[in-house]
Nucleic acid binder design. Structure first.
Lengths: 239, 239
DNA sequence: TAGTGGTCTAGACCACGTG
DNA sequence: ACGTGGTCTAGACCACTAT
């Protein structure tokens, strides 16, 4: 079975760059060398390098080679599609999740429109506080389509919903449309978030889709503004 | 000359999807059909489809086909690496840029560190107000390395620096590291931005690099919080 | 079983940067 | 001139979905 050789190459090189086994500013071995070393065709090597380039590990320069970039300044990407649990476990700090609410609801009119739901589709509603050092700095509200997620427990919510969905239910979470705005704190924010002098809350609203392009989740993640930070690597597209 | 057939295919299909010539929910023609229609090999078609997928136009489903996604909900991406001028000209509304300051500076200690500059490298400093309906809602401060940009005029800054860099100087802007935070208004914000009750400003700091992986720009873009909106399409990476 | 996308290959030719 | 990456090709085999 052809099993994603290009990913192995990507991961191996990405690790070496992160761990500075390959130093920023240096050149990667030429593609022909990598072909030999990994015993693969050139297109396969190039797939791996394209991924490294997209994710900010290298800059390819025609006629010269692949320059390794300094990747240290943007660890901790809230960019992309990553669950809180995955971020927290890679973090130095001690995070804690508190489940405030876990109920089944009939979606009201507006929610049905936003999520494009049928009449009889019910939703899980989960409200969770993300705490650090005794303070609640993130308040997450998730709505999950019950057709896709028939069973959900407080225990799962305290641990990681995404882990449960992917490893237990074998759902394939695929993509999301996200929107970030800054708003005044709502009543719920005032109730759950530890707001000091903060007068603003950063709100990330996401529509999350499965593998088969089916919507299964709407999330509203509300961050205390002073604890919010979004880091991103962007390439200029010449289309 | 092999001149990016896959980009032509990408652009043609992307346009059809944006203009709803191909409707969301439908399937794209199979790859084999596209090979015939465009008279290209399958890998070339697949490069175009991979781009469409990355940019949120389609979802590929193995054994089934490429489902067209609803692309309407996220026009106006501040995501990626796009200049204000490019956004403004695609907008319905009437934007205006005012150049508040255009000077050459010797970078102070901290700036030299952040931008990793040599002792003798000077910078252009440009401060610009972005106005809409008589209100200044964005305040941009750019620092440009003079080695890369020897000449800069108020006229260029009022129009579009990026346009000048790419089309006149033929610099190839390639990638950026960006960071978004929410902060209290600074003295300069209070002077230039039209702040009503706003107590927060969204700050986007970017390090921008050329083609050859050389840093040439640092930008601080400060947005009135109520006018800020960031829209993004993200794929979950299974690496 | 037929048709779709997913991965890989071996080879070709072109464009760019360096010596 | 040489070595590098950039693009494209024609073909192979596998995995998944539909019927």
């Amino acid at each position: 079975m052809h099993e994603k050789k290009f990913l192995n190459i990507y991961n191996e090189l990405a690790l070496k760059i992160r761990e500075k086994t390959i130093v920023a500013g240096e050149l990667l071995p030429p593609e022909s060398d990598l072909c030999e070393r990994y015993q693969v065709s050139r297109e396969t090597v190039r797939k791996a390098l394209a991924l490294l380039s997209r994710n900010g590990y290298i800059q390819k320069i025609q006629g010269k080679g692949s320059v390794v970039l300094d990747v240290s300044r943007f660890e901790f990407p809230i960019s992309g599609l990553t669950s809180f649990h995955e971020l927290a476990t890679h973090s130095e700090e001690e995070w804690q999740t508190v489940v405030n609410q876990l109920v089944v609801i009939k979606p009201y009119q507006k929610m049905r429109q936003v999520m494009n739901l049928k009449e009889n589709q019910n939703l899980w509603k989960v409200i969770r506080s993300r705490m650090i050092g005794g303070e609640t700095v993130i308040l997450d509200t998730d709505y999950l389509v019950m057709d896709s997620v028939p069973i959900l427990t407080e225990d799962i919510c305290r641990n990681s919903i995404y882990d449960y969905l992917e490893n237990e239910l074998h759902l394939k979470i695929s993509f999301a449309k996200k929107q970030i705005t800054v708003e005044s704190p709502s009543e719920e924010d005032k109730r759950y978030l530890t707001l000091s002098n903060e007068t603003s809350v950063v709100v990330i609203r996401s529509l999350v889709y499965l593998d088969n392009a089916q919507l299964f989740q709407f999330t509203e993640s509300r961050h205390r503004a002073d604890k919010f930070r979004f880091v991103d690597f962007a390439r200029r597209e010449h289309l």
